[in-house]
Computed example of a mutant assay.
Amino acid sequence: MIEAKNIIKRYGNLEVLKGVDVTIGDGMIVSIVGPSGAGKTTLLQIIGTLDKPDSGTVTYDGVDVLRLKDKRLAQFRNKNIGFVFQFHQLLPEFTMLENVAIPALIGGCKQSQAFKRAAELLDYMGLSDRLEHKPAELSGGERQRVAVARALVNKPAVILADEPSGSLDTANKQELHKLFFTLRDEMKQTFVIVTHDESLAGNSDRILHMRDGMIVEPDSVI
């Protein structure tokens, strides 16, 4: 379980988050929705330990991650949190197999084990014939599936996704959303997703509505 309590974040005189409280249970898809500038991405980055709040706490199964030293925090992030971004952020000089394996290698996994896990995930994504391809040789939908495989390689507690289907056409968007729900059902994977996509949000287990740095209404449970 992930708990963020009384999260306050300022940039200069601008208060971006104004005491946000969020609890996320295991095996859920939670969508964070709201207008641009509401603080959605900032909250996601703080939950993902990529940024720190000015005050408040973030705990994973009782571990106060904001109190961890930088090296320990990086290790925790690598092991427990997977990230999917709008523009996939794959490294262009590496193959798909290498891109997916990188977080496992950073975490100290043996190369043979990291590549085996990466190949299994790419096969699960329907990309077993793309192992040696580089990002430029794949479609946008394929690249985003590779990004999901990379996020899963260390078997994280949660995947955080920031507008993951925002750059995809309708068909690839639907395939990506279907993949998220399949992963929830088959792997009991937890997702926290910042999205403007009404279809994805509407099918989520919970919807958190944000405006002006606050959750503005009780979250919706589907």
Rank of each mutant, 00 (worst) to 15 (best):
T23Y: 03
T195G: 06
V84P: 02
N13D: 14
G82K: 01
L179R: 13
P218K: 07
N80M: 12
L200P: 06
A201T: 02
G107P: 09
L68Q: 08
K116E: 14
E93N: 07
E93L: 05
P35E: 13
G82P: 02
I32T: 07
I29S: 03
S167F: 00
T182Y: 09
F87M: 13
H209K: 11
D197T: 13
I102W: 05
E15D: 11
K155Q: 15
D205L: 11
L90T: 06
A201R: 05
A118D: 12
D185A: 12
K9R: 13
N154P: 09
L14I: 11
N154T: 01
K134N: 13
V33K: 01
K18C: 08
K116V: 07
D26H: 12
G19K: 10
T95R: 02
D54C: 12
V63Y: 03
D219V: 04
G140N: 08
V194C: 12
L168M: 10
A147H: 03
K173D: 04
V221T: 05
T190V: 05
L160W: 08
G19W: 07
K188S: 15
D219W: 05
A38W: 06
P35C: 07
H209M: 09
M187C: 06
D212T: 00
M1S: 12
V216P: 00
I106Y: 15
L168T: 04
C109Q: 09
N78S: 05
R130T: 13
A136R: 15
L14F: 14
M187G: 00
K5L: 11
A149C: 08
G82H: 00
P35M: 14
Q75S: 09
V148P: 01
G202F: 13
R184S: 03
H196S: 07
L127D: 06
V65K: 10
G48A: 09
S55L: 02
T41Q: 04
E3K: 15
F181R: 09
G37H: 10
T41I: 02
G213T: 06
N99K: 02
K155D: 15
I207K: 01
K79A: 12
V22A: 07
D26A: 12
A114T: 12
D51P: 06
G48R: 01
G213D: 06
L14G: 07
G213W: 01
K69Q: 03
A136T: 12
G37S: 14
V63H: 07
I8A: 09
K134L: 08
L176I: 14
M125L: 11
K110T: 12
C109D: 08
G213R: 01
A104R: 03
E163W: 03
R67D: 15
P164C: 14
F94M: 11
G34L: 05
Q144M: 10
R145Q: 04
D169G: 10
V192N: 01
H209I: 06
F87P: 01
A201Y: 02
A104K: 02
I32E: 03
V100F: 06
L73E: 01
A157L: 08
Q86V: 00
R206T: 08
L14C: 04
N80Q: 08
V146T: 07
K79T: 06
E137C: 13
R77S: 06
